[in-house]
């Protein structure tokens, strides 16, 4: 665990942390009707993820279970739940907020640290294959324009995104 400045363990504190984050504002509106879970394509396939449970656990203050577990990474971001939620809980955005908090605490799945590394190094999260890049003229495609990776790095230096990898390294 990272040494948190605000190591509040009360229930209230965790939902406060979530509601004060971009995307997490609406979590407390949840009244557990299950529309999200029923709408969720993932939840129907695996018991590892149920958005209703993630919200309930978060509201009950089960911070560690939520942040270090794998459930929050199983949302497929399809927004079906968010569209249908009768309480206007922005569920998919809440999951983003929870992931953001987890990342801050150093809980990053490998694939996501790879994404981060690619983005920081290449400005893309999917690397271009040299083979296809060479083939472009043959296919009648214009050559690829340069990527604004320098600009991105300047952005990262403000948001602290460039630190994500290091934190992961420390954590592991």
């Amino acid at each position: 665990m990272k040494q948190g400045k605000e190591e509040k363990t009360t229930n209230q504190a965790f939902s406060d942390v979530i509601t004060s984050r971009l995307g997490g504002e609406t979590i407390t509106l949840c009244y557990q009707c299950g529309t999200c879970a029923s709408s969720c394509p993932v939840a129907r396939i695996t018991p590892r993820f149920n958005p209703r449970e993630v919200i309930k656990l978060s509201l009950l203050g089960e911070k560690d279970e939520v942040l270090s577990g794998d459930a929050i990474w199983l949302c497929c971001s399809c927004y079906n739940c968010q569209e249908r939620c009768p309480q206007k809980v922005e569920i998919a955005d809440v999951i983003y907020a929870l992931r953001n908090i987890a990342v801050k605490e150093g809980n990053i799945p490998n694939i996501y640290s790879e994404f981060a590394a690619e983005l920081i190094n290449e400005g893309r999260i999917v690397p271009i294959s040299k083979f296809l890049e060479k083939k472009r003229p043959d296919l009648g495609l214009p050559s690829l324009k340069p990527v604004g990776v320098d600009a991105l790095r300047k952005i990262f230096s403000i948001t602290g995104f460039d630190k994500i990898k290091q934190e992961k390294a420390e954590a592991s």
Partner: peptide, 9 residues
């Protein structure tokens, strides 16, 4: 029969 849950669709 009673089902606690709001149908999604």
């Amino acid at each position: 029969k009673f089902v606690k849950g709001r149908p999604s669709e």
